[in-house]
Design a protein around this nucleic acid. Sequence first.
DNA 1: GCGACAG
DNA 2: ATCTTGTCGC
Length: 245
Amino acid sequence: MEDLQREIADAATFTDDLPFDPATVGVDGPVEADSTGNERLGTSDAPVIVGVDQAFLDERAVSAIVAIQDGAVIERTHAVTPLSIPYIPGLLAFREGGPILAAFEELSVDPDLAVFDGSGRIHFRQAGIATHVGVALDLPSIGVAKSLLCGTPAEPVDDRPAGWSTPIEADDSVEAPAGTTIGHAYQSRQWDRAQSINPLYVSPGHRVSASTTVDLVDALCAGYKLPEPTRLADRYADDVKAASE
DNA sequence: GCGACAG
DNA sequence: ATCTTGTCGC
């Protein structure tokens, strides 16, 4: 499995190769989770961005995908799939990749970018879940993780203001030249005082550079810690789970 | 053997 | 990820 990941990392592109201008991406505010937004289908040229997340029940995964365009939800799909292997750090894609692809098969719109819950290039072999699925679908993808799998932040990450970011550099645990920027710690939100919020760890999945990944996540956040696509997929996965138990 | 480790 | 009450603050 590790050799396969090296091949996937090799096939991945960590430079910008997007079908849209990242500078035009953004959400005005929180996206309505129950919006149908179908009236705009086929009318806009704006990029279709999908958020992917999962919820679990026993040995099954609920993979949810929520597609947004122009700051509105245009489609939601999901798949409930049996799980085969347990969670092993570094091998997450082998547990969740298949179930996620099953959900993508239910999607009717053509996404321009996928935002994953987990790492992309911030991975021992530079092949996190965002890279696996991005390469499999040859779709631009980024990984947004809530904790750091590997690599070293260029600066301390504690108590940073919203908008701050610092590179995550390859260290001995990463199969890349030492010092290579494999992603960034990005503070999407912060409290005004007292308690502090941990930063997000964002990294390229496929066909996106590390710096553009930060710009995209920044543009997709709307006042919450997680970018809108991820937030919506997270909630949708929970809804589907609740409805099926 | 010890430590470290996305979801 | 999941199991869960209370609690602080806009």
